[in-house]
Write a protein that binds this DNA or RNA. Structure first.
Lengths: 210, 210
DNA sequence: GTCTATACGGTGATAGAC
DNA sequence: GTCTATCACCGTATAGAC
């Protein structure tokens, strides 16, 4: 093996290691925000949960603000990748694609108390933090647009009982309501309970699409 | 005027004055949370905006935590009083009452960017703050229950296209979506745009209730 | 890369005069 | 009730050894 190849290999490993550390810290940050809220999430506590020293945490993320932003980005990309993947594998019929999008919203990777808790925490601060707004906004907008387009397409195929934009708002609204239900609703509420009402609403809006 | 009456009078004035001060501080707190977020809302800034000294702010609320809690309570009671009043003046037909509840959700006193911003901020922290959860929960639950009951009643009169519980979730969901729209949606979105889609959905669910 | 130690500023809360 | 002055603490970020 040449020296050059060895160097590249080592460099890749270092990068891998660095990514691993970052992921470790981001996980700890998510834990903290979930259990303590953003206002009580400190570098010291994040360091404790991640097992690293406080200095090391700062070393990897420069400062607390960027750590929080990257945590939000991570959550965001996870959600984005999830629904884009599911959509890519879905059929061509708008109803199928809409359904895929709905199911993606309830995928275990995103639809769990820990993640949603953190999501809402960032959301609550987003109005006053331009960075959060930008990060959330991009994904949110893309999701909304996709839902809207599918409602328009579906409306073209088999006219629904609501104007496409109203349909889109209703569907997004009930999805959000289920997220909220999981987070704050009855303790018995579980993942499996979320889907049925959304589909019931979808079928009500587009009765001839099944 | 007797001494006793004078004393009562003076006491009443003192209480009035105290209430006025508290209101003043709560308003400043709402401003701060709206513009800076909860994490950047400090006693110093609240004092500055309210025109009082920091010491005086603490004097009236004991400490920062109870100030924030009472700010949330104030918001909550405002919302609660609003929809209860509107409901009391509404007709007997469940659809009218449901409509009243919807309109109450968009009343200027609650449906404005400043208030909703603060509302969401508290909401985001509520999972990790038991006090917030209790305060929000009480109102939220009452509102949800009322919507559910009305949907059940309406369903009895003229069966809707959705199970009552699904209908309730859908309606609450689209209301929340409009709140969110006002806060984060297009800048052009205004109060008057919020009502129509909700009514459209309501009519879709209960087509024979008009 | 990782740690410990520390400087620095900001924050909540108190004391005491008026 | 209201203010100013002050304190003790905590949280972030940096410095420097390894």
């Amino acid at each position: 093996m040449s020296t050059v190849t060895q160097k590249n290999f080592a460099s890749r490993n270092r990068r891998r290691q660095s990514e691993f550390r970052k992921q470790q810290v981001i996980d700890a940050t998510i834990d903290c925000i979930d259990q303590l809220g953003i206002s009580q999430t400190t570098l010291a506590r994040i360091a404790e949960r991640s097992g690293l020293s406080q200095g090391n945490v700062v070393f990897h993320f420069k400062n607390k603000d960027t750590l929080l932003e990257q945590t939000l980005m991570h959550l965001n990309e996870e959600h984005l990748a999830n629904w884009r993947d599911v959509l890519a594998q879905a059929g061509n019929h708008p109803r199928d694609r809409l359904l895929a999008l709905i199911e993606a919203s309830f995928a275990p990777a995103v639809f769990n108390r820990r993640k949603i808790s953190v999501w809402f925490a960032f959301w609550g601060e987003s109005r006053s933090k331009a960075a959060y707004m930008r990060i959330c906004g991009a994904n949110d907008q893309a999701f909304s647009n996709t839902v809207s387009e599918l409602c328009i397409a579906l409306h073209g195929l088999s006219p629904g009982r609501l104007a496409p934009q109203t349909a889109a708002t209703s569907i997004e609204g009930i999805i959000d309501a289920q997220w909220q239900n999981l987070l704050l609703g009855p303790p018995g509420f579980k993942r499996g309970d979320a889907l049925a009402p959304v589909i019931e609403l979808l079928d009500c809006i587009y009765p001839h699409a099944g």
